[in-house]
C-alpha cells in the first residue's frame, strides 16, 4: 500500500476507501476500521473521532455497510470551510484533510458533505469550544497508507483504484 497516487479521478470521486461485495469478503463487523482510525490519528478509541463508519444492518441481519469519505473532486467541505487552507486543506496529492489545530468546530464542512449520513464526523454534543470536525485523510502521512485497510482482518475494504480482488 502507498499513498503516492494522485487523488483525482474522472468520475467526480477521488481515490477513497471502498467496501468489497460480500462474495469477495464479508464484513466481520469487528469495528477495527473505526477503532484504528482513532488510534493512529489521536491515540484514542472513540465514536467521535472516527473517520470511517460501520453502519450496522438491522439488528438481526449482521450485514454491515462501511461508509467512507468519497474524496469528491469538487470537495464542497473544503469550499464551505471559513478557514480554507488553514483548517480544511488540500495537500500536494489532492487529498482534502483537516488541520485539527486550526479547526474551529463550526460544522459547516459536515453540513456541506453531499452524502447522507455525512462522511465528516462532527459531534454537536461536544462542548462548543472543544468541537472539531474529523474527516478521512487517507492516512496521508502514514507510510503504510490507510490504517483501516491495513488492520481489517478480513480485508473487506480496499482503495477505489485498486484492481477488484478475485472471487474465491
Amino acid at each position: 500500500m502507498n499513498n503516492n497516487l494522485n487523488n483525482e479521478s474522472e468520475n467526480g470521486l477521488g481515490r477513497h476507501v471502498i467496501q468489497y461485495p460480500d462474495d469477495i469478503s464479508f464484513c466481520a463487523g469487528c469495528s477495527a476500521c473505526e477503532i484504528v482510525c482513532g488510534l493512529v490519528h489521536e491515540g484514542v478509541s472513540s465514536p467521535s473521532v472516527k473517520r470511517i463508519f460501520l453502519e450496522r444492518g438491522e439488528k438481526q441481519s449482521l450485514q454491515h455497510a462501511v461508509l467512507t469519505c468519497q474524496h469528491c473532486d469538487d470537495h464542497p467541505c473544503y469550499e464551505k470551510c471559513p478557514k480554507q487552507d488553514l483548517a480544511m486543506c488540500i495537500d500536494e496529492k489532492g487529498i482534502v484533510y483537516i488541520n485539527q489545530d486550526e479547526c474551529i468546530g463550526c460544522g459547516l464542512c459536515a453540513k456541506a458533505c453531499k452524502f447522507e449520513p455525512s462522511r465528516i464526523n462532527f459531534n454537536k454534543k461536544t462542548e462548543k469550544t472543544k468541537r472539531k470536525a474529523y474527516k478521512c485523510d487517507l492516512c496521508r502521512t502514514r507510510e503504510n497508507g490507510p490504517a483501516c485497510i491495513e488492520y481489517c482482518q478480513v480485508k473487506c475494504i480496499g482503495l477505489s483504484d485498486w484492481p477488484m480482488p478475485e472471487k474465491a
Binding site: G38, V44, S45, S46, P47, S48, V49, N123, K125, T126
Partner: peptide, 15 residues
C-alpha cells in the same frame, strides 16, 4: 449510547 473516548496507555502496543 456514548460519544466519549477510551484512552489506552499505548496505542502503538494496541496495534
Amino acid at each position: 449510547k456514548g460519544t466519549g473516548a477510551v484512552v489506552p496507555a499505548s496505542a502503538e502496543k494496541v496495534l
